[in-house]
Design a protein around this nucleic acid. Structure first.
Lengths: 335, 335
DNA sequence: CTGAAAGCGCTTACAG
DNA sequence: CTGAAAGCGCTTACAG
């Protein structure tokens, strides 16, 4: 069934059928009825590819997810997916682990002829104003590593101040009397937000006259099981450590279990701070102190902004959202 | 940049460029090199729509997710997405909450011209052998409610025996001496796997001569916060209950926190069984006893099966995977 | 209000 | 091993 078949069956030209399909006003209502009934009868659905080939309008929105699909990302994904579908766009999800995030993004946009794209995670420090020249696509970067804060006008960003957030978390531990503070990062070669968080941690340590120790970095791979294993061996070796700052809540849970299974007490023996503000931190026993990211706001703003950009209703924006240190019951005050 | 531009720049015909792009063997290697270098230099990416228009081959794989995007689904999604992309297919993710899952599926297939689709969750009890006639698409249903077990030959299924799993969980509680056992389901109108699990629970209760009580059903909406709230009010009202079977681990965590916050002890006062076998059950303190679904196997098999179907290497299959009751430390033995 | 025709960017027999 | 040409199913000026 093609538009030509429908045209013949309806006794009209293909242009008329096309007009009917696309709700053009200038079609006699009789003709429209006739065509519509044939379409209905034969269960005709226009070929999307042919359409896209003609119009530049693909109605494709891409979501490019870097690295893990952790629960934090899933929550965002769900919100985005709901809004995208409600707008009649198609959501194409791609997950990758390529080192070059920028190339991957550009390839993704071209290949799928995306009109808009949201990047979730990744490292975009090599980004340039002209990176998206001749691409004509609305881009929103979310939770990415983007060193410089220029007033980029070829893409939008929504982020939290990852360095300041990590700084706060670390300072909070120091204020509570901790000096031997380990940090649990993701991968060893993570160049995304994890890197920025590490810098915040490092600065807080240094600002307070504490010596930076490379061996206080634990690589937890953003994953609860790995976090558990790595924390277990780390804690066995480093008895003087009194606190661990994990840059994701799932890793914080792994650390917590390691503490318990080593016969230690969370809080009394080892203080723990997480990051993300997932429900699980709040519902763990004891409640884990964490840096809460406004994930609902992040996802809502990113989609809203994307559609505003698509509709030409706004210039590119660079939004910095607030984080909040949510106190749990996982930190001991040392005198 | 189109194939014509590349052809001109390379000094060859478009057919040759096309052959290079599609890895046809009969191109002189010099020519191939030349074309490839031009493609690289100009960062050319073929127009997918034009390609699809010629080949009927859309290379689109749809993933239709019903209801929540819980961590269990996310884990599966990640696996699927990785395999789909590795095969050069495009993954289109759609999330819905429509009551008619079958209609939604058929619309999705037609609109996106899908060659394959995996459904994650939903209610397909109305499915018929001829539901997918003249659709020419490979369908794999995963974690869905599909009452009858005919040897359907128009789609494949991968599932666990949700009723038996729930039966086992409930029987395990009964064997440990519990009589007043509540169950926490998802939504009130969930017609997916939750319904089957309820039936397993009900049968176990009845088989052991215990009276079924409708007021022992708690609707937790598959979500930790709701689970916490609902469990809190439920436990205040029903002091005689000694065990709660939650049909997802995230809900089990919510229940656990409710128990603690009411000043009760998990296990000694209220026993808890979860469902899914998520890491979080294992790393919670105490460890939550749960029914473990083989999620890695499920996702791997579903994609493998999908591609075998697409390549015509197999007939439709109906695979039933084993579950495992993983003992934690959340169940008290009552004499 | 309607139709014939060009063209979107590819792939693929076909001929050499 | 290579190229010219037809055609996939649409949309959209253009002419009437």
């Amino acid at each position: 069934m093609t538009i030509t078949d429908i045209a013949k069956l309806s006794g009209v030209g293909v242009s008329t059928v096309s007009r009917v399909i696309n709700n053009h006003p200038d079609v006699k209502s009789e003709t429209r009825e006739k065509v519509l009934s044939i379409i209905k009868e034969y269960n005709y659905v226009p070929n999307n590819s042919a359409r896209i080939l003609k119009q530049s309008n693909t109605k494709n929105i891409g979501i490019l997810v870097k690295g893990v699909f952790n629960p934090f990302f899933s929550a965002i994904l769900k919100n985005i997916s709901t809004s995208v579908e409600a707008s009649g766009y198609t959501m194409i999800l791609q997950h990758h682990n390529n080192p070059n995030d920028l190339d991957t993004l550009v390839g993704f946009i071209k290949e799928k002829k995306l009109q808009g794209v949201i990047c979730l995670g990744g490292n975009f420090i090599d980004i340039k104003e002209e990176s998206f020249d001749d691409l004509d696509v609305a881009i929103v970067l979310l939770c990415v590593n983007l060193k410089t804060q220029k007033a980029w006008n070829s893409f939008s960003t929504i982020s939290i101040a990852d360095d300041i957030a990590a700084y706060e978390a670390t300072r909070y531990l120091i204020e509570n009397g901790h000096r031997n503070i380990a940090i649990m990062l993701g991968d060893r070669d993570d160049l995304g937000v994890g890197l920025i968080r590490y810098e915040g941690y490092k600065r807080a340590i240094e600002d307070n006259g504490i010596e930076i120790r490379e061996d206080y970095i634990i690589y937890g791979e953003y994953e609860v099981t790995k976090a558990y294993e790595k924390a277990t061996s780390f804690l066995k070796e480093n008895k003087e450590v009194t606190a661990i700052f994990a840059i994701s809540d799932m890793m914080a849970i792994g650390v917590a279990k390691a503490v318990v299974n080593l016969g230690l007490k969370i809080r009394d023996d080892i203080s723990i701070v997480g990051f993300d503000g997932m429900d699980v931190a709040k519902y763990y026993e004891p409640t884990i102190t964490t840096i809460k990211q406004p994930k609902d706001e992040m996802s809502k703003m990113s989609v809203d902004l994307l559609f505003e950009l698509l509709n030409g209703e706004t210039q590119h924006k660079h939004i910095l959202l607030d984080i909040e240190l949510v106190e749990g019951n996982s930190i001991k005050k040392i005198n």
